[in-house]
Design a protein around this nucleic acid. Sequence first.
DNA 1: CTAGGGTTAG
Length: 599
Amino acid sequence: MHHTAIRTPTWVSRRRLLEQKISDLHKYSNLNHLKQIQAQILKSNLHEDPYIAPKLISAYSLCHQMSLAVNVFNLVLYPNVLLYNTLIRAYTQNSLYTQAFSTFFQMQRNCVFPDNFTYPFLLKACSGQFAFKQVQMIHTHIEKFGFSMDIFVPNALIDNYSKCGKLGVDAAKKLFDVMTERDVVSWNSMISGLVKAGELNEARRLFDEMPQRDTVSWNTVLDGYVKAGEMNAAFELFEKMPERNVVSWSTMVSGYSKAGDMEMARFFFDKMPFKNLVPWTIMISGYAEKGLANEALSLFDQMEKIGLKPDNGTFISILSASAEAGLLGLGKRVHLSIQKSRLRHSTQVCNSLVDMYAKCGSLDKAMGVFDGMVERDVVSWNSMLHGLAMHGHGEQALGLFSRMRREGVRPDGVTFIGVFCACTHVGLVNDGRNYFSTMEKDYGIVPQVEHYGCMIDLLGRVGYLKEAFELVKSMPMEPNAIIWGTLLGACRMHNDVELAEVAINQLIQLNPSDANNYTVLSNIYASIGQWDNFAKVRLQMKGTSTPKKAGASSIEVDNEVHEFTVADRTHPHSSRIYKMIDRLGYHLKQVGYVPRACY
DNA sequence: CTAGGGTTAG
């Protein structure tokens, strides 16, 4: 060997060094480190390098820094298919499906053609995220380019189609029927779509027709029975299965829990040969939903004791159940566990915490979590806004809305529901009307039936019944039962019998089998002395059935939830409770409260 | 492809 070794030119070594650093990026996910490297890349003029730019985008994507990732992308003058694929994948990794979708079309506008990787990134990672029309557009493009692809693409299309409602399932069926070659995944995806659409019989027919079935096929049909609440049929199928995995067992646990049979759920849970986080989550959330805080708490402790680390799904699921049932104690316990975990800064988890605290009435704690968040998305703002509005802090809620706009967060349709809810609670009719008229003009949000509902409630409550009714008539969509119900509520408040009759008749038309509506209508006729109409309605009523379960309120005392319905005397301290209510009623009347008139 | 999962008027 010569004593003077051949030196690598500096730019090559620098490039190699950078490449090495970039390859190691995923190990650190350290943002400062990343920015340093990007600066070096820019200095070396390597940002257009078809190998380096995608690596950098992926690294930023892993750090959830999509705006920085997009910056890298925008620096490249002529992005190629690899770069587009990387960006699409980065978007899907960060749950930004709309952006992934538009990037897909942007690449075609720029005459960069999708390759065999583009569709898998788009379809697989976004499975269940696209609306029917979007899947249809992707489908059209695939057919236009006429790729000769493996079975993966049609399978992914069926999967995506079958996750967007009835229309989607029909499209999936069509595609499934024309496929010349099908594997077990094609069948399973199709069956899963039918199960989701509630077409259980059709799903079962296909299942029986399959040339061969794997455990997924069995699990899918099992889930179909569970979703239909047919636990006996589910049990029968479960016993027939040639092989059961953790999903099969979890499906059974979930089914019994949803059916309210926690003993059977626990029986299956205890019998499972292997448990991952999912059955633990199902079981704990199941207990929580039913208000069984102690059972939920002890199981949560047990899960942590055996060394299982809850993931964000576990946290979110249990928190949502705690919020629903008002279990502040359980929620606090979960919060403690979150603070100790590496998920303490997860936006999704914090959003659930905000919602839980707000729904449990602990607004200070909700605000504390909200203020401590490193990154807030629109859901965070919506949760906090709605929490404030729900508990009567209308002004604070509207204040939060202006803060949201100041910080440059784009409100969405849900935000406005919170805003209207706040206006309703403070009685700010003019503000509500203003927000309603500007939401489309200034924010590009087309009012949906829900927004009309809020406005009708707002107008109706303060007695602007005519205006509320005009708004109902002006709706671009068919008013649903909730709209008429809201209007009816307003009529009740302000004793407008005529309009109440209109509303209730609409309700009966929409849902002729609901006996409740006939009762209300007959009471209206009774109250104005139209006894012939009263008799007519009572006669109509006889043909209907299904009295609904009475609405219930609940309160948590010492980790135990007590539920109450109208005229409930089942509680052991019932007489003391009613004595207290009477005293409260007396005091309320003293200060001028007039109970609302009821039909 | 199958089991748990964040905000939504009355």
